[in-house]
Computed example of a mutant assay.
Amino acid sequence: MPYVMRNADGDICGLFEQPQEGFAEELLAADDAAVIDFLNKPLPVAAVSARQFKLQLLAAGLLDSVDAWVAQQPRDVQIAYEYSGIFVRNSPMMETGFSAMGFTPQQIDGFFVAAAQL
């Protein structure tokens, strides 16, 4: 039976064989649905190729909106968007762009997971 650590939203964020000092845990059965869901959750994707990123923008119907947004940004952002070989999930420019498009952190993760499959 694993010890379960949850985040502020109540989602499982870690499984441990022993209690972890300084954290509130609960003990759940290994076959508990929440434990199984946590173990089957796709790992976060830290970066994707430019091809994957832009094809996912196209698939999501966002390519034209993002192109228009980038065209109004400072020159360094335009150059990075046009010439980067990879797009890194947690880069400041990426965070700014996704925020401007109204994405939540969970939606950004989902976008990168989908893009990584292309």
Rank of each mutant, 00 (worst) to 15 (best):
M1Y: 13
P2C: 05
P2E: 11
Y3T: 06
M5R: 15
D9M: 14
D9N: 14
D11E: 15
I12D: 08
C13T: 11
C13F: 06
G14W: 02
L15Y: 12
L15R: 04
G22K: 03
F23V: 12
E25A: 12
L27M: 15
L28N: 03
A29W: 07
A30S: 15
D32P: 08
A33P: 15
A34D: 12
V35E: 03
I36Q: 10
I36K: 14
L39W: 07
N40I: 03
K41L: 07
K41A: 12
P42L: 05
P44V: 05
V45I: 13
A46M: 01
A46N: 00
S49G: 03
S49M: 04
Q56C: 06
Q56M: 01
L58M: 11
A59Q: 06
L62G: 09
L63C: 00
W69Q: 10
V70L: 09
A71V: 02
Q72I: 00
Q72D: 07
D76N: 02
D76L: 06
V77G: 02
I79V: 08
I79T: 10
Y83H: 13
Y83M: 09
Y83A: 12
F87K: 09
N90K: 13
S91H: 15
S91P: 00
M93S: 06
M93A: 04
M94Y: 06
G97H: 09
G97Y: 10
S99K: 07
S99H: 05
P105Y: 01
P105Q: 03
I108S: 02
I108W: 01
F111M: 05
V113N: 09
A115P: 00
A116N: 02
Q117C: 10
